[in-house]
Design a protein around this nucleic acid. Structure first.
Lengths: 196, 196
DNA sequence: CGCGAGCTTGACGTTGTTCAACTAGAGTGG
DNA sequence: CCACTCTAGTTGAACAACGTCAAGCTCGCG
C-alpha cells in the first residue's frame, strides 16, 4: 500500500498500535515524542529508503513516538502480521530486520551518552554533522526543520540554537542563510562535537 | 561456564569483542561507558537473573560498554556461536532473545527522553525510584553505589547528588543514613520525577 | 498595506558545575 | 594506643551555562 503525505502531515501518531512497518520511498520525516507536559523531543530524522518500526515485529504494543513528514513524502506500508509469516521461512530477511533493531539500539545509546556528557554547543555540532553525513550526504544543504525543531532535536532552547548557529557563522565554521547551511570547517566542527 | 567476581572487579571491559552472553546468577553489576576524555556514564544496573548482551546475538562487533561488579557476583557465560545454532531450531528461545533486545531499546529511549527533558532533581528522583522498583523491589535498601557513581547514573555532579539527597531527607521524602535509603513518600517522589 | 509566524537579540534569573576547604571513618605503622 | 594517611562524603562560595522573557525584526501572504 503506497501513500502520499504533504509536509507537516502526521504519518503516525504516538499512542496508537503499530500495525504496519513503514518504508519511506521519497521525502524525509521526523520521529518525535511528546511528554505529558507537551514538551517535544525529536528522536531522529529519517530519509528516503529508511525502514521505521522494525522493533514492532517483536512486540505488539502502543508506539510511543509520532512520525511526521518534514518534506512531501511517499511511503510504503508493510503489514506486520503478514511480514511475520514471511520471516518464519526467510532467515536472511529475518536477520536483516534484527540488525535494524540492534542498530537502532546502538544509535540511541550513543545519543544518550552524548546528551549526558556534552554541553549544548557540542550537541548542536552533532546535529549539523548528523544532517550532513547521514541525511544529506553533503556539506551543504537546506534545512527541512525550523529553529524550534532543531532545538527539539538538540535538546535545548530555540534561542540557544540561534545564538550558536550565528556564533559558528561568525567563526567561519559554517555559513548560514536562513534555512541554508554550508559546513566550511568540518574539522573544527568535529572538535567541538568531541569536546563539547 | 560459571565464574565468580568480587565487588569492583571488571567482568567485561569496553572495547573488546563480546563472545559470551552473560547471565547473572548472583549479585549486581553496573553497565557503564567511558568516553575518550575519561568521563563515565552508568547506563544501567542489573541484578540477579538478568541477561546481558542479548544484542550481540545479532551483531558481531566490539562492545562499547563495560560490566563491573558492584556486589560479589556469580555469573554464567553462554557462548554466542553455540547459542546461535540452538536458536535456529528454537523459535521460542529466539523470540525471547529478540524481546530482550526490544525491551532494552525501549528503556534506553525512555532514559534518553528523560535526560533531555528533566532537570537534575527529577533525574535523581528517577534513580531512586529505579533502584527501589526494579532492583531492590523494596522501599528501603542499602546502596551498592557511591555518591560518585550515583552522579554518573543521574548525569550530574557528585555535589548535586549530595545536596539533593539531603534536601529530600530534610523534606521528609526519603530517609538517608550513609548508604541506606528509605523512601518515606513515594507519591511526592513520583511527582518530582514527573515535573522535574 | 497590514498581519502573523518564524526568527533574532539582549537582559536577567536560575540551575548546576567547579573549586577549595573541611569532616569522618578506615586502615597502617611506629 | 596514638599519630598519619587515604578515601568518601559534605559544605559553601564563585562562576559559567542555559533557559526565560520581552521586545523588535523580516518576510510571505491575504
Amino acid at each position: 500500500m503506497k501513500l502520499k503525505f504533504k509536509k507537516n502531515e502526521n504519518i503516525f501518531k504516538q499512542g496508537n498500535i503499530f500495525t504496519h512497518i513503514i518504508n519511506i520511498c521519497k521525502g524525509k520525516v521526523k520521529i518525535c515524542h511528546e511528554n505529558e507536559s507537551g514538551k517535544k523531543t525529536i528522536l531522529s530524522i529519517k530519509k528516503e529508503n529508511s525502514i521505521i518500526g522494525s522493533e514492532f515485529v517483536y512486540k505488539s504494543d502502543i508506539c510511543n513516538y509520532s512520525i511526521v513528514a518534514i518534506e512531501d513524502c511517499e511511503i510504503y506500508l508493510i503489514e506486520i502480521n503478514s511480514l511475520k509469516i514471511i520471516l518464519q521461512n526467510n532467515n536472511e530477511l529475518s536477520g536483516f530486520i534484527q540488525k535494524l533493531v540492534v542498530e537502532k539500539l546502538e544509535k540511541i545509546t550513543q545519543f544518550y551518552i552524548n546528551r549526558t556528557n556534552k554541553q549544548v554547543v557540542g550537541r548542536i555540532a552533532d546535529v549539523i554533522i548528523f544532517l550532513s553525513e547521514e541525511i544529506f550526504k553533503s556539506q551543504s544543504f537546506t534545512l527541512p526543520l525550523s529553529r524550534k525543531e532543531l532545538s527539539e532535536f538538540a535538546g535545548c532552547s530555540q534561542e540557544n540554537i540561534i545564538n550558536t548557529l550565528s556564533k559558528f557563522d561568525k567563526e567561519g565554521i559554517i555559513k548560514t542563510d536562513g534555512k541554508k547551511i554550508e559546513i566550511l570547517n568540518i574539522d573544527t566542527l568535529k572538535r567541538i562535537s568531541k569536546h563539547g
